[in-house]
């Protein structure tokens, strides 16, 4: 059974972080990503889902199978209506953390994907979009 190529799921609690990992794993397998590429995409999704739940106060993950000529890829968006990120450069620095984490979530997940886009403003939530091509 294959998932539709576009969809979304809520990210409201810790259980949803686990569900998002499983969803991304299924999608990456359908796209026949290599095991390493699957692992990178699932790990990035785990980091960003947790950010959405813990810092964004919950939100959703949207997914889309995208193509560029013969290439297929997986695009994920993590959106919340939380407080936003006041200093983006700082938040993207290795080791910087606003919570109790290691500060590798945002900067680290950027290294695991091919494309990384972040839109945020204080009080207006955050949306992080990542894409990995096969």
């Amino acid at each position: 059974m294959s998932d539709p190529t576009i969809g979304s799921m809520p990210l409201g609690n810790e259980q949803d972080i686990v569900m998002s990992r499983q969803q991304v794993r299924r999608l990456a397998q359908q796209l026949k990503f290599s095991l390493v590429d699957q692992t990178k995409m699932v790990t990035a999704a785990s980091e960003l889902s947790r950010n959405t739940v813990v810092y964004g106060g919950g939100g959703e993950m949207r997914w889309e199978v995208v193509s560029l000529g013969p290439r297929q890829g997986l695009r994920l968006a993590f959106a919340d209506q939380g407080p936003g990120i006041p200093d983006l450069d700082l938040a993207l620095t290795d080791g910087w953390t606003s919570g109790g984490g290691l500060g590798m979530g945002l900067s680290g997940s950027r290294r695991l994907v091919d494309e990384f886009d972040i839109r945020t403003a204080p009080g207006e939530g955050t949306c992080v979009t990542i894409t990995r091509w096969k």
Binding site: T39, T43, D94, L112
Partner: peptide
């Protein structure tokens, strides 16, 4: 640790 996990972990920065 699985090799794919090790590769990802190091790239993540850990």
């Amino acid at each position: 640790m699985q090799p794919a996990v090790a590769i990802t972990l190091v790239e993540l920065g850990l």
